[in-house]
Amino acid sequence: MEKEIIDLEVKDFSFRYAGASADSLKKINLPIIKNKVTALIGPSGCGKTTLLRSLNRIHDLYPGNEYRGEVNFEGRNILSADEDLIHLRTRIGMIFQKPTAFPMSIYENIAYGLKLQGIKDKTVLSGRIEKALKGGALWGEVKERLNDEADALSGGQQQRLCISRAIAVEPEIILFDEPTSALDPISTEAIEKLIMELKDEVTIVIVTHNMQQAQRISDYTAFMYLGDLIEYGETDKIFNNPDEELTKQYISGQFG
């Protein structure tokens, strides 16, 4: 077995929303392994999204939220006050539950992140855009109509557009928050396949409510419950032979 590298290390991490009276995440410890898929599972409200959104500090868009503990990435604690958030977010991309195509053309959607990085050269842009759309398994469907508005695409295509847009800036890690929960089975299958292909290039963290999906695509699984990380391990172990009684009950569908 190849050597496992920890890409992102969550250490004694607690999180409290602005104005909340209790922590939504309580002293989480979790390694995110490089070039693997880590699934976050657990019943609704257990803090999966909260944890995921801490990893690129998108919570900072809203004032007053409180981080405690550490999240270490590339040798530094990204929770520190002087973290360069703009740089961080180009290294750690994010895909949302609902597709978030910008109100512009397909081409401009993908070009957006690249232009933010100062890439202006037309031929360089076109090359990167083609590569990203191929990586997002969308190229064949849109290569003839790159200048069409992105909202003319189907939901599944839009989600792949968002994935293409995220990989265009060549991030180290991509965070997915229930990326297929709004999609039909065929689009879901396409995106699952895509995620498994992507892990050669990037590290993936995915929140999902779908137990089969977690089993199909993830290498590691973390089970969360009421803001605590109950159990973490290889996906096979979590689903077939968990250590914790709570994990066993959850994956057998007794609650959640």
Binding site: N56, I58, L61, I86, H87, R89, T90, G93, M94, F96, K98, T100, F102, P103, M104, Y112, G113, L116, Q117, C162, R165, A166, V169
Partner: peptide
């Protein structure tokens, strides 16, 4: 979510507003 998507790509807030939110 549109704002968050722009921020998640590494856009500074003023660019998010001028390039994505205004367009919407």
């Amino acid at each position: 979510t549109l704002r968050e998507a722009a921020i998640a790509l590494g856009a500074p807030k003023y660019k998010m507003i001028m390039q994505v939110v205004y367009r919407g």
